[in-house]
Design a protein around this nucleic acid. Sequence first.
DNA 1: TAAATTTGACCGTC
DNA 2: GACGGTCAAATTTA
Length: 293
Amino acid sequence: VPTTGMPESSISVDGSPRSEEFERGFKDHVVDHKDVSKKRKLLPTWTDQVRVFSEDGLEGPIDDGYSWRKYGQKDILGAKYPRSYYRCTYRNVQNCWATKQVQRSDEDPTIFEITYRGKHICNQNPHTAPAPASPEKQEPKQINHHNNHQQQQQPNELLLNFRTNLRVNTEDFDYKEIASSFSFPSTSFECMKTENQNFPFSTTLSNDNLVGSFSPSFISPATSESNYFSVSPCRMNNFGGGLHNFQHSESDLTEIISANTSATNSPIVDLDFSIAPVDLDPNFLFDAPEFFN
DNA sequence: TAAATTTGACCGTC
DNA sequence: GACGGTCAAATTTA
């Protein structure tokens, strides 16, 4: 299959199509593949980790609010389970280029790592999105939602998700780009601080390696199972939702943050998730206007 | 019958 | 050449 004219060429840095690029990509079917590759790398990318409880009998519907169409599956070297590739159902209709990859964890098959790439620009109604039949048939949906202006979730739906899933959220973002222009939302910080005792972020992200800004306890909390960070989903929503829009990374920094919403070691979950998400703090600083596209 | 999924092939990167 | 990501024809599902 010739890949010329691949519409990915129209993807802008933040995952949103730029009209002129879009038109050019379709009219001329001219693609600079190097350019495509660069832009792919620049797409905002973040990762969620989701645990599915099969024992509670709730296999779904668990939905992240968007409609996805599977377009591929690959066996990954060194991984027990194949990786599935999904794109937005409305890719062609609404030119929404959001994609995600679902990889089942080797260590714990109930955990799915979902890597999102690109932001949804489609105008789909989250509550009319078709629900997956089961976590086995289709990947589980993450419990935390990177809420932005396009995605909201009803409390009932959240409740269902929390009952069915265990966790989680990770973020990878371009510290290089945000380091000088970005400050954490004060509200989220405050939440995390009070809730997690000592939120270990430095408010100045200025090192070559962002992970270095985290305390060991942040990366490897004293939980029994794994490297997950216990924090309420509501906080992670704010935190992640704020951050993932700023991922323009060419570095592949991954797994910076994980939230553990396990019923066994995070009893605060049920208390917290009903709290309405807090809007981005007005002090949140942006340098790049295209963040808002 | 339209939409979604499966799956082998293709392509770019390393 | 190996690997990961994507395409699209074939197949399945609703």
